[in-house]
């Protein structure tokens, strides 16, 4: 599948408040954003700003109260193999070996027979061919997340949604995995939306960064990262951008406190 643009127009979503089920709390308020085909965009913001909710809406796992979500020109109505989703927890199926996990999407779509070769190709791509017959509980966190990425990518999604995929990894593994994800992105040219709470990760990886503020979740600002890849984490431009974003995030946090009061 080709990479595809993603457009979100004035999407709102509310959930019943946990302490008072009769009232609904607005989680996302009038979100509009669009990603060009093949673009890598990060969403950052304090916890509770609705980042994960937005990803679930795009994945089709939840539906919005109002607004419109489009992949290319197709409205999103239900989950579909053309929109892959990778969570912070790799969520590999523990009862399947690594190979069977990676080919799960092909089995689910009933195309394993035609595309069996791709399984080996994707296991090589993420460097797990040695572990083909290992079960997920034998894998380290980084390896498990690589398997989860391969499992999502084997469907050649038009859009890949990443929900803090590297959040549970230690700092060194995480930096290596950032390169890995970039490599996969460049190899497949899929449209990628990355939710993260790590500013460095957002700057290091994305074409654009969207900063969200919580309660209700909305997009405060969009920043284009005009740096050449591979990016230097200690370059002057990188650090200046980091400072700017940190400031914006503080503002976003404060405004949410005001809203609450």
């Amino acid at each position: 599948m080709e990479a595809s643009s993603l457009r979100i127009r004035e999407v709102s979503k509310s959930f019943p408040a946990p302490d008072d089920p009769l009232t609904r709390r607005l989680t996302l308020s009038n979100i509009s954003l669009s990603l060009a085909a093949g673009e890598l965009v990060s969403l950052i913001g304090p916890s509770g700003c609705g980042k994960s909710t937005l990803l679930r809406l795009i994945a089709g796992l939840d539906s919005p109260d109002s607004g419109e979500l489009l992949v290319g020109s197709e409205p999103i109505t239900s989950p579909n193999a053309e929109r892959g989703l990778v969570f912070q927890d790799p969520n590999l199926f523990p009862w399947l070996t690594v190979r069977r996990n990676i080919q799960a999407g092909l089995v689910a779509r009933g195309v394993l027979r035609e595309k069996r070769d791709e399984v080996d190709q994707f296991m090589r791509l993420v460097g797990l061919e040695v572990f083909a017959n290992a079960y997920p509980h034998h894998l380290s966190g980084g390896m498990a997340q690589r398997a989860a990425l391969a499992r999502a990518l084997i469907n050649h999604p038009k859009v890949l949604l990443l929900d803090e995929p590297l959040g549970a990894l230690d700092a060194f593994t995480r930096m290596r995995m950032q390169d890995e994800v970039l490599r996969l992105w460049q190899a497949h040219r899929t449209t990628m939306l990355l939710v993260t709470h790590d500013i460095d990760e957002a700057i290091y990886m994305s074409d654009r960064i969207m900063i969200m503020s919580p309660r209700p979740g909305k997009i405060e600002q969009t920043i284009s990262v005009g740096l050449d890849r591979p990016r230097q984490r200690t370059s002057e431009d990188f650090l200046r951008l980091r400072g700017d974003i940190l400031e914006l995030l503080h503002l976003a946090g404060e405004s949410s406190v005001e809203n609450k009061n």
């Binding site: 089709g60 796992l61 239900s78 989950p79 989703l85 969520n91 689910a108 469907n155």
Partner: peptide, 16 residues
């Protein structure tokens, strides 16, 4: 629930 969510985004139908 996350296993079911993952499977759905991989293109799984009800039988799967």
């Amino acid at each position: 629930a996350s296993y079911l969510d993952v499977a759905r985004t991989l293109g799984a139908g009800r039988a799967y």
